[in-house]
């Protein structure tokens, strides 16, 4: 049977986020946490492959203990196995170290055919992790997919890439990066939601994945964030009023003033 791994992340809901106006840092206690939106599409990709070809689907997340929430959610959607990679020593990891941790955990979990990640996480918006995982694991990565078929030990993929649509053949194992356009996310059944918190979650720490403390967390991360500030862009806001014709008159006049209309 196919083995599919899906990387999911718990993120603050940046659309409703509360910020400290002085430092620009997100107030985590006042902001709700959700499953990263792209990762719902990643899960959907895995689950629809399971529906079509039969597969065992594992959801894996790296994060603090409360990140188990997104694993429970994944369970409700139909995932077979959940893995929480969690350790104090991972705190402050940048995208490179996150990829390192995930890749090592994945190797420990055994053989797999397909790994699915979201395109980007809405808190960092780096879109690095998929690419860096594929480098750590030395497997091909494909993004911008809208069709994915499996044929024996290969995948046939259709995607929009750069200036063109492509049809591609690639041997498994493969990593696919999934964004919002790939599919429509399913709704879990109520019965599943009720029972999902009873499911067992496998927890892995640094001791399980190996490596040393200096390789992980802020200490192992090459990037350092030295400042964060809140963003504001106010302008003149001249209100053009009158009836439609008057408004158009003023607008055309202003555009001429700015040398945009030259006749």
């Amino acid at each position: 049977m196919l083995s599919i791994l899906v990387c999911i992340k718990q993120v603050p809901d940046t659309q409703k986020a509360v910020f400290d106006p002085r430092t620009g840092v997100i107030d985590r206690s006042g902001t709700e946490n959700i499953m990263n939106p792209d990762d719902l599409h990643a899960l959907e990709m895995a689950l629809s492959l399971k529906d079509e070809y039969g597969a065992s689907v594992t959801a894996i997340t790296m994060g603090p203990p409360q990140a188990a929430d997104v694993l429970n959610e994944a369970h409700a959607l139909g995932v077979d196995r959940c893995v929480l990679v969690s350790d104090q020593r991972f705190a402050g990891s940048d995208s490179l170290v996150t990829s390192k941790v995930l890749s090592r955990a994945i190797v420990k979990l055994g053989a797999y055919d397909i790994i699915v990640t979201g395109r980007e996480a809405i808190d960092g918006n780096t879109a690095h992790v998929g690419f860096q995982l594929s480098e750590f694991l030395q497997i091909p990565l494909l993004a911008q997919i809208h069709k994915f078929k499996i044929n024996k030990d290969s995948a046939i993929i259709e995607r929009l890439y750069g200036h063109e649509y492509q049809k591609i053949q690639v041997r498994l194992p493969v990593l696919i990066v999934v964004g919002k356009h790939a599919n429509r996310v399913r709704i879990p059944r109520l019965a599943d939601i009720k029972t999902c918190t009873d499911k067992k979650i496998i927890v892995m720490t640094m001791n399980d994945i190996g490596g040393t403390e200096e390789e992980y967390g802020a200490a192992g991360s090459p990037t350092v964030v030295i400042e964060t500030e809140i963003f504001s862009h106010k302008r003149g806001k001249e209100i053009l009023s009158g009836d439609m014709n008057e408004i158009i008159d003023i607008l055309v006049h202003r555009l001429k003033k700015h040398n945009i209309l030259r006749y």
């Binding site: 620009g24 809140i230 963003f231």
Partner: peptide, 11 residues
């Protein structure tokens, strides 16, 4: 950063 709500400075 944070979906455009803030600007982060990174080295």
């Amino acid at each position: 950063a944070y979906s455009g709500n803030a600007i982060a400075t990174v080295i």
